[in-house]
């Protein structure tokens, strides 16, 4: 597998949160700098060129070579951003999909509940309008989520991982995700799915692999702390 990510160490599992934060940390300064530049330019023009007689206004109105060069510079910025984006996207979408998962969870959305089924253990957890059983996962391992829906479109969103995937009727999509720390993280349906969309929530409980194994051996009884 070709290693495209800029900073990711080769061979490491793809971490969506890391990919997002890395890309975000490059995009934000660029955006802030461009914003500041434009506001400064406007401010300069206003301060420098107001309160002159209209007859003093210059008559030049074109500089195609300058604009052409400027457009070229912008195009280079676009190429740079696309390089970053395509590299990150390659890791999140393609490299991750080729990882060998330590755990597979089938996620099924329905109005208005989540069903998390662990085929290896025969455990099912449900959350939403029916209750709040957590999605228990091990930390530091690649987890394959196969997402599908039995009715309308939902979206499986875990803000902590900076990742979501739509649940499209008639298809099963998969995503390979990694939790890099233990803890409780909220998750929610992100695509409006009708009356009680707001209640279609769940909690991820990320625990260390030993705790996870114990929980799975117990048939999903009790929530590891």
């Amino acid at each position: 597998m070709v290693q495209v990510g800029l900073l990711a160490p080769p061979g490491a599992l793809v971490d969506t949160r890391h990919e997002y934060d890395h890309l975000f940390s490059i995009y934000v300064p660029i955006a802030v700098a461009v914003f500041a530049l434009v506001v400064l330019a406007i401010g300069f023009a206003v301060l420098r060129y107001s309160r002159r007689a209209p007859s003093q206004a210059a008559r030049w109105h074109e500089h195609n070579r300058l604009e052409g060069g400027y457009a070229l510079a912008l195009a280079l910025v676009v190429v740079f951003l696309l390089y970053l984006t395509f590299s990150a996207e390659h890791r999140v979408d393609t490299v991750a999909a080729h990882e060998r998962p330590a755990l597979t969870v089938d996620v099924t959305g329905a109005k208005w509940e989540w069903q998390f089924y662990y085929p290896a253990y025969g455990i099912t957890a449900r959350s939403g309008t029916v209750g709040r059983q957590p999605l228990v996962v091990p930390v530091g391992e690649a987890i394959r989520f196969n997402v599908s829906t039995i009715d309308v479109i939902h979206a499986f969103w875990i803000p902590q991982l900076r990742y979501k995937r739509d649940l499209i009727p008639g298809t099963t999509e998969s995503a390979t995700l990694l939790f890099d720390r233990a803890g409780s993280f909220p998750g929610q349906c992100a695509e409006f799915c009708g009356l009680r969309h707001a209640d279609m929530v769940f909690t991820v409980r990320a625990v260390n692999p030993a705790q996870f194994a114990a929980w799975a051996r117990a048939g999903g009884k009790g929530v590891p702390s």
């Binding site: 990919e19 997002y20 890309l23 461009v34 914003f35 951003l81 970053l84 996207e89 900076r162």
Partner: peptide, 21 residues
Amino acid sequence: LIGGLSGIFLASPVLDYHVED
């Protein structure tokens, strides 16, 4: 400009996976 610059973020699938919807 604020809208446009934030649009560049949304144009990146990896960033969009988080902030979409």
